[in-house]
Computed example of a mutant assay.
Amino acid sequence: MRELTLKSRGLYRCEVSEEAPSFHSAQSEAFMEVYYFPRETPRITGHERAYQLKEPLDVNCSSAKSFPAPDLQWVVDGQKITDRSWLIAFGAKPASQGLLVSTLGLRAPTKQRMKLKCVATIGSHRRERTVIIEVSSSSWNKPFSLLIIIALKIVCVKIS
């Protein structure tokens, strides 16, 4: 079959016939889906900013344009995230030419180093993107040193 579009999905029948002298024939029908697999890996946003230790991680994964909308999943440090309280499903949004883009958010506590992977799947076809987030020790020490300065200031006020 050639020149298929997303609108080409439907019930199709195929018939095979022998030539003379028997002219036997067989036919079968089935529903056909047309898939458009993403050409790019998913895009992860929100990982670029500096995070402090234990601050909630706020990242999103968006699939490339495809049809049907891919299923998305997050894998953190090799563990698939199934805790729904960490996931925000934005669902599929229409894109050009009848294609769809899926987005899935991840809200989780940060650790010193995290390996985040987003996997987009349509049937047995999969695309994935991985990013590493490293919380610098200087960024998580700052709130502690600020707390000490504030505490010393309060103590100084009480003494004088």
Results as ranks from 00 to 15, higher is better:
residue 1 M to Q: 10
residue 2 R to A: 15
residue 2 R to E: 15
residue 3 E to Y: 15
residue 3 E to N: 15
residue 4 L to H: 09
residue 4 L to P: 00
residue 5 T to C: 05
residue 5 T to I: 06
residue 7 K to H: 13
residue 9 R to I: 06
residue 9 R to P: 01
residue 11 L to I: 13
residue 12 Y to V: 02
residue 12 Y to S: 02
residue 13 R to T: 15
residue 14 C to P: 05
residue 14 C to K: 08
residue 16 V to E: 06
residue 16 V to L: 14
residue 19 E to Y: 10
residue 19 E to N: 14
residue 19 E to L: 14
residue 20 A to L: 07
residue 21 P to D: 06
residue 24 H to F: 13
residue 27 Q to N: 11
residue 30 A to L: 11
residue 33 E to I: 10
residue 33 E to M: 10
residue 34 V to Q: 05
residue 35 Y to Q: 10
residue 35 Y to I: 14
residue 35 Y to E: 09
residue 36 Y to T: 13
residue 37 F to V: 04
residue 41 T to N: 12
residue 41 T to Y: 06
residue 46 G to Y: 03
residue 49 R to Y: 04
residue 50 A to I: 09
residue 51 Y to P: 03
residue 52 Q to P: 01
residue 54 K to S: 10
residue 56 P to F: 08
residue 58 D to H: 05
residue 58 D to S: 07
residue 60 N to T: 13
residue 60 N to S: 11
residue 62 S to Y: 01
residue 63 S to I: 05
residue 64 A to D: 15
residue 67 F to H: 05
residue 67 F to R: 00
residue 69 A to Y: 02
residue 69 A to K: 02
residue 70 P to Y: 03
residue 70 P to E: 07
residue 70 P to V: 09
residue 72 L to E: 02
residue 73 Q to F: 08
residue 74 W to L: 04
residue 76 V to Y: 02
residue 76 V to R: 00
residue 76 V to E: 00
residue 81 I to N: 00
residue 83 D to N: 15
residue 83 D to S: 10
residue 83 D to C: 06
residue 86 W to T: 09
residue 87 L to F: 07
residue 88 I to P: 00
residue 91 G to I: 03
residue 91 G to K: 04
residue 93 K to D: 08
residue 96 S to Q: 13
residue 97 Q to T: 06
residue 97 Q to C: 06
residue 97 Q to S: 13
residue 98 G to P: 07
residue 100 L to Q: 13
residue 100 L to C: 04
residue 100 L to W: 04
residue 101 V to N: 02
residue 103 T to M: 00
residue 104 L to R: 00
residue 105 G to Q: 07
residue 106 L to C: 01
residue 109 P to D: 01
residue 109 P to R: 04
residue 109 P to Q: 03
residue 111 K to N: 08
residue 111 K to P: 00
residue 112 Q to R: 12
residue 113 R to L: 12
residue 114 M to V: 10
residue 115 K to R: 14
residue 116 L to D: 01
residue 118 C to D: 01
residue 119 V to Q: 07
residue 119 V to M: 08
residue 120 A to W: 01
residue 120 A to L: 06
residue 127 R to N: 10
residue 135 V to W: 03
residue 138 S to N: 10
residue 140 W to R: 05
residue 141 N to A: 13
residue 142 K to Q: 14
residue 144 F to Y: 13
residue 146 L to A: 09
residue 149 I to Q: 05
residue 150 I to P: 01
residue 150 I to S: 11
residue 154 I to A: 12
residue 157 V to H: 07
residue 158 K to M: 11
residue 159 I to H: 12
